[in-house]
Design a protein around this nucleic acid. Structure first.
Lengths: 328, 328
DNA sequence: CTGTTAGCGCCTTCAA
DNA sequence: TTGAAGGCGCTAACAG
């Protein structure tokens, strides 16, 4: 393993000069710089991170902890990693157990903090984790990605309400007048967008409840709902719901012989991989994953590098994008 | 920040004794051990990783580099991380750019090696990256996750051929006799499983070619293929293909009024999230992501901790699992 | 512009 | 069973 000392011996300079040349800090004559560069190349020198971090008294690693294995996270992770890498930091990704997020988060945390990360990004929605984050924030830079605004903490969230509102307006422009919203367990942050839009457009409020939790259940419930709607007196002419639910609805409408989008339009939510694969391909609201990743990384590094360690937390909303396919 | 020295001062012991007590190495009197434990607790001491790594001359970080953002990776990552964490290592995840894997891999690599990982896990299939891995292997422990056996390198791969073979046998048991295989661009490792099965079962070889590359193209091609099959003289009664292609086929069969699975059975490949959401829900071969993650982590740590640094590379196949839903 | 000096926090001899 | 001394590789003062 090549060390600074080796380069110093090789070039006949002092370690210090070599160090400064490599870091491009302070005065170095062009000739010296070149000699060092050549020696570094020749001896294949790479600075020892452990030594640097020890000396500089900080690690250059940020950690992302996600409260689920949601496949949509992967693009966020990639974006965060990219941002961090450009600043010489590495990112490590961690996932709580699916069946018990809170407890496994608490179990994970001490281990992770033991690695002395420079900062933390938490992708989570549960109150328990959010509370932890509030406490953590006082110990190290800490940014959240959550479902909505989170008081007292730096947070990036997707503007779900805004997205839904946009989707309803789109449906209205397509001539739909009876637009329903399917109220899944986790949609409390979307509903205001629906309510706002129908009030703006003076449309009737049509809320379809759904209590299913697991994916197969949701799909089945969608199928059932579609069959029910097929024989309803005064059915909606458009539905906004999740991609999963939409999959069930499309299956149910197909079984009932109802044509989508001619008789009823369906707009999903999330733009999961399945959306484009359904029959018909689903018009849906896409999560801006890359934007979210970049935004939270930027916030974290602002805290990390800047002086505003103690300033007021910031909440950033990222807009969704309506992906128009064939179902609406 | 609390250091060993603080604990030493607090307990009146030497740093050395404290260090040994904490690491539970060497002789320590029970009384001393307890005193140290209490002080560690009281002062909230955590060993400084940078200092440990510097002194011990090794980092305790492993890196995973994946050649794509495939959402199926996320479970592999979680499994690897879990395995590594139990051994006091952290995992960091990295992704090459989607549009240019080879070049971005080469660009990424020096940066990553600069962080002196203790070991590398490469999730990749391109020859270029595999060659890189062969070279890397001589510098640090290095394990691959790939599509098939890879000579000269530790590798975990999913037994795709075995999975397909199993699926064909399953279809045969269901009474299917004209079983087709849809030959997508990336399926050369699956085809042998099909060929073997039909030869074992004495069935006709029915290969359907497909050249589409992007997801929407694949779906469209599936739809077209289904319509073509609908009017064919002597159509197959079952098809094995990718989940994406299956999505298109199902849409096409629905449009042509052909019932699945009654008239034709469809078996997918990968068990992507969309599989359970299609109409009908897709019977498919599931990737054993957790098993793959655990297996490659285990291999890496065997190299890392064991003496067998220079031994013969090992290739491990992990079997797929047939998930039976409604399409076959 | 360059060199000298003094550690960062920890672990590994070796001696007591 | 414990302590003292030295150094891992690097960087920040400070002095030339």
């Amino acid at each position: 393993m090549t060390t600074l000392k080796d380069i110093a011996r090789e070039t006949g300079l002092s370690m210090n000069t070599v160090s400064r040349a490599i870091r491009q800090s302070g005065y170095i004559s062009p000739r010296t710089a070149e000699r060092v560069r050549a020696a570094v190349e020749r001896l294949d020198y790479h600075p020892n991170r452990a030594a640097q971090d020890l000396r500089r008294r900080r690690s250059r690693q940020i950690m992302v902890i996600a409260e689920s294995h949601d496949s949509l996270h992967i693009e966020k992770l990639a974006a965060i990693r990219r941002y961090a890498a450009r600043r010489g930091y590495i990112m490590s990704a961690h996932f709580t157990s699916e069946d018990n997020p809170q407890d496994s988060f608490r179990a994970l945390l001490p281990d992770l903090l033991g690695q002395t990360p420079a900062g933390l990004i938490l992708i989570a929605t549960s109150e328990a984790v959010i509370d932890e984050a509030r406490a953590l924030r006082r110990k190290l830079p800490c940014v959240m990605v959550s479902f909505d605004r989170v008081p007292d903490i730096d947070c990036v969230y997707i503007d779900r309400a805004g997205g839904v509102r946009e989707a309803i307006h789109y449906l209205h422009r397509q001539g739909r007048r009876r637009i329903a919203f399917c109220d899944l367990p986790n949609t409390r942050n979307r509903k205001p967008g629906y309510l706002r839009a129908i009030s703006e457009l003076d449309l009737p409020e049509l809320i379809l409840p759904c209590t299913a939790q697991t994916l197969p259940e949701i799909r089945r419930e969608g199928e059932r709902l579609a069959r029910r709607l097929a024989t309803a007196d005064h059915p909606p002419d458009a539905i906004q719901t999740s991609d999963y639910m939409a999959a069930g609805l499309l299956a149910g409408f197909a079984a009932a012989g109802i044509r989508v989008p001619e008789e009823i339009a369906v707009v999903g939510f999330d733009d999961r991989e399945l959306a484009g694969m359904l029959n018909p391909p689903l018009t849906t609201l896409a999560q801006p994953n890359v934007e979210v990743g970049t935004a939270c990384a930027r916030m974290l590094f602002t805290r990390l590098e800047g002086k505003q360690r103690e300033e007021t937390p910031e909440n950033v909303a990222v807009p969704m994008r309506l992906v128009i396919r064939n179902s609406a």
